[in-house]
Amino acid sequence: MDERPAPRREPGTGPEQGLRELKKQRTRRAIAAAALRLFAERGYEETTIADIAAAAEVSPRTFFGYFPSKEDVVFAEVDDRLAEVAERLRGTPGESPLETIRRGVVDVLEAIVGEHGEYGSVRTGLVLEHPGLQARALRRLTAAQEAVENLLRELCPGMDEIDAVASAGVAVGGMRAVIVHCRRHGHGPASMRTALDRATRVVENGLASVETLVRP
């Protein structure tokens, strides 16, 4: 009989860790979905953290384990998508920086279109109505643009600083504007995808004028 000890497993790895992370993701999404539903039914100001926790079948303490405040739960989807941007926007051999950006942006936008369905318009309405949420949205938008700027500099060493800043602003700002427009006017997922496809072409046409972005 082979009595050699089993390979040592590093802490925080393996199937158990994967299941814990999956459970955390599900809990986070359940809290966010419950919050948006209550905001739609009762109103933002009228909904308390205790209400959200009860609707998601968790304790208020668990709520704070996932979100620092009621304001932050509004942006759960946005924060998740920004994390996906960081994971997906990596160049591959033979791919131009512009193609890398398009691939990552399309994946993320597809996820946004499908996430929370009917509550997407609720989130947009909340941000448009509440100055405090507008300020938080602006900070996240700024962070997203800075992330894209950093990626452009990584993909295009020596890229002109203004080209990087302007390109990031066009990509992030243009897509955000179309999403807000569609949600404000009640567009469904199919209509949003069509609009975002058109917006992607507009953005690509603009970015194609930056020579360093189209070179593999």
Rank of each mutant, 00 (worst) to 15 (best):
R90W: 15
Y119P: 08
V78P: 10
P93W: 00
I101M: 08
K70W: 00
E95R: 04
L98D: 00
D79G: 01
F75A: 01
V108S: 02
V85H: 12
S96G: 01
Y119H: 13
F63S: 02
D80V: 00
S59G: 08
A54S: 09
V73N: 10
A56N: 04
I112C: 01
T92P: 08
K70P: 03
F64A: 11
D72Q: 11
E77M: 01
T92N: 08
S69P: 11
E115L: 09
T100I: 14
E115Y: 12
D72V: 06
P97K: 05
A76K: 10
A111I: 12
V78L: 14
K70M: 10
P93A: 03
V78E: 05
P68S: 14
E71M: 13
A54W: 00
V78A: 13
R61Y: 10
S69M: 10
E87K: 15
R88T: 05
V73W: 10
V85L: 15
G117L: 04
T62V: 08
R103S: 13
E84C: 14
T62W: 07
L98G: 01
D80N: 04
R61G: 12
E77R: 02
G117N: 04
R102T: 11
R61H: 11
G91E: 06
T100Q: 11
S96N: 06
D107E: 02
P93K: 00
D72I: 01
E110Q: 08
Y119D: 06
P93V: 04
V74F: 08
P60I: 10
R90K: 15
V106L: 07
G94D: 01
G117P: 09
A54Y: 05
F63W: 08
A54G: 09
L82F: 14
Y66R: 06
P93Q: 02
E77V: 03
